[in-house]
Every structure is written in structure tokens, then in C-alpha cells.
Design a protein around this nucleic acid. Sequence first.
DNA 1: CTTTTAAGCTAATGGCATTAGCTTCGCTCG
DNA 2: CGAGCGAAGCTAATGCCATTAGCTTAAAAG
Lengths: 182, 182
Amino acid sequence: MPRAGLSTTAVVDAAVQVIDEHGASQLTLAAVAARCGVATPSLYKHVGNLAELRTLVGLRVLDELADRFTEAATGRSGAEAVTALMHAYRAYATAHPARYAAMPVDPLHQPELAAAGLRQLQVIQAALRPWQLGPSAQVHAIRRLRVMAHGFASLESAGGFGLPEDLDETYRQLIDSFLDTL
Amino acid sequence: MPRAGLSTTAVVDAAVQVIDEHGASQLTLAAVAARCGVATPSLYKHVGNLAELRTLVGLRVLDELADRFTEAATGRSGAEAVTALMHAYRAYATAHPARYAAMPVDPLHQPELAAAGLRQLQVIQAALRPWQLGPSAQVHAIRRLRVMAHGFASLESAGGFGLPEDLDETYRQLIDSFLDTL
DNA sequence: CTTTTAAGCTAATGGCATTAGCTTCGCTCG
DNA sequence: CGAGCGAAGCTAATGCCATTAGCTTAAAAG
């Protein structure tokens, strides 16, 4: 019986694939094991349990999004940077709707996820720098940005918009209304 | 052995209590049955299966929120009505965070839920009437309102805001930025 | 070539959803 | 008031999943 050559990373890879194909609620150790060509209990050599696997997937998603953020923001500043970040956020959620649903919304409250959450935060802070906001105003501005990005992305990726009206236009209005307040 | 006197409504009541106490992910037929003082299979006399129970809970939540909307909007109009609706939305989500998480985001796509979704929609339409928006502008305006309300409420009810800055102020800014665009 | 470590396996337990089929409460009607 | 019936609830059984324990053995280290 040859060895499958698994690793924690490979297990998380498989978990992400399961989520992409069947939805975040269908993430199951049995499904991941099947995809890895391994018996279910074998996964416990690489992952503590299902809850930990979920956390690792959450971390993966946070990191991926932070990478997109960094990519979108480099070489831009001000309104252009904010717009690029918002589009990167939405693009990630629509490209991987199930994965987006698996992203934890409170990364700063979980030690394993805090670093990835902070990476995202710092990119946004940098984009807002030109406006020279005070500490408190900056917090409120980042929150509003996050509310709009997450609100829109979670609704869109879950099929929550029923009418045929152009969604790009709605998103543009949201971004513009934010920029107008600065 | 006396009879428990259950009904579909009573089962949904118990399900909502389970969700309130243990979170939406812990909604289980076994937990509902225990709360009703009944064996698990007995629930199938009142509810098709777990998926249907989830739908019924979703309907209950949609209806409750529509009631709050109606209550908040009556006797008000214009900016005052919009503000009241937004506060009613947030108040419901913070009063019942787990229940809020159980609210379906695509009610218009499910026949059983469409009526409740439409009730909410109509209250919002009425509140926006003073601005005399065209059909398309109205759709975008309602979407932006929903994005902000849902984005904020889902983050807040999930503990997604990490910093101690005043959340009322952030929400106020969101509402103001919306009203400024009209 | 031996030793050792850890990867993977099988077996077993317990929780949950769901189905089938039985029992009996409690209402309706003669 | 008693017979009959429909629905409410029950027990038993199946199958899936997570998790644990303990065994086997591949493959790296010496």
C-alpha cells in the first residue's frame, strides 16, 4: 500500500476544492478524505479535527483576499486605490462564492487569523492616507468601506439580488457615495 | 402516555428558541424534539424534514422583520422613515443575532418566502416615495440601503467589529451618506 | 541493514436524520 | 354512550459523519 504523501497544506487544498464544488456547508472530513484518496481517520494526522480544518480554510481565504488587496493597491493611491480595492473584493467573492462564504468575519478575535486580518486592514489604511483622517474618522471610514464591500459581496455571492438591474451600477454608486464623504 | 399537543407552529417556536440559545448552526431535530418533550421522529408529523424546518424558521424571521419595518415606518416619511427603518433593522439583528443569521438572503427566489420578502420591499419603497425616484434609480437606492443594513448587521451580530470605536456613530454615517445621495 | 517515526489503516463508538411500522389518544358519528 | 377512525407519538432500524484507539508498515535516518 503506497503512501499518499499528504500534508496539512494538501488537506486544506482539498477542503477548498470541496467547498468550491459543493458549498461551504458540505465541507466534511469524509468528502475531503475521498478527494485525497485516503480513509477519513487518516486526515487526523494532518489536521486536529473538522473545526480546525474550517479555521485553516478561513485562514487560506483571508490570505488569498489579502494578496488580491495588495495587488490591487500597488501603484495606486487615493480614490483610485479605494476603487481598486472595492473591485478586488467583489471580484474575489464572485469568482469563489462558496469560498467567500467560508471567510471568517471576525479575524481579529482569533489569534490564528489576526495576522491575515491585519494585512487587509493595513492595505486599506494606506489607501486612505491621502485624506489625512484622524484616528477615529479613519476607523469609521474603514468600517463603512467594509460594510459596503461585505454587504454587497455576501448578497451577490448568495444570489440575494433578485432584480435584473445592473449590479455594476449599484456597486459604483456605493463606492461613489463613500468617496463623497471624505 | 399523554399527548404533547404539538403543531407546526409550536415546532418552529422551539426551533427559534434553540437557535437563539445555541446558534443557527446548532439547529437540530434532536434538540428541537428534546425541547418539545418528544422523540425525534415525532417531529416528522409536523415538519417534512430538517431543510423544511430551516425554511419555516427563515419565513418566521422574515415575517418578524417585516413587522418591525411596518411598525417603524408608520407615521413617518422621508429621511425620518428611512432612518427609522435602518434602526429597526439593526435593532432586530442585535436583539436576536442568531435568528438574524438564519434569515435567508434570497427570499424572492423561494416561492414560500417571496411574500414576506415583498412585504419588506414595499415598506422601503413607500419610505422612498417622497424623492420621486425613477424605477431604475429606486432599485439602486433600495439595494444600497439593503447592502448597508445587511452588511452592518451581519458584521455586528457576528462580532465582526474589533475596535472599541462607537458603532452608533458608524451606522449614523452610513445612513447619512445614503440620504446625501438622494 | 537496522531502527524508528509517523502515515495510513481497520474497528468501534456515539450523534444525528430519516424511514417503516406499531400503538393508542381523542374526536366524530351513530 | 360506545364504535371507529385518523392522526400523534413511539420504538426499531439504517446509514452517514466525526472522532478515538490501536495496529501495520513505508520510508527516512543511522
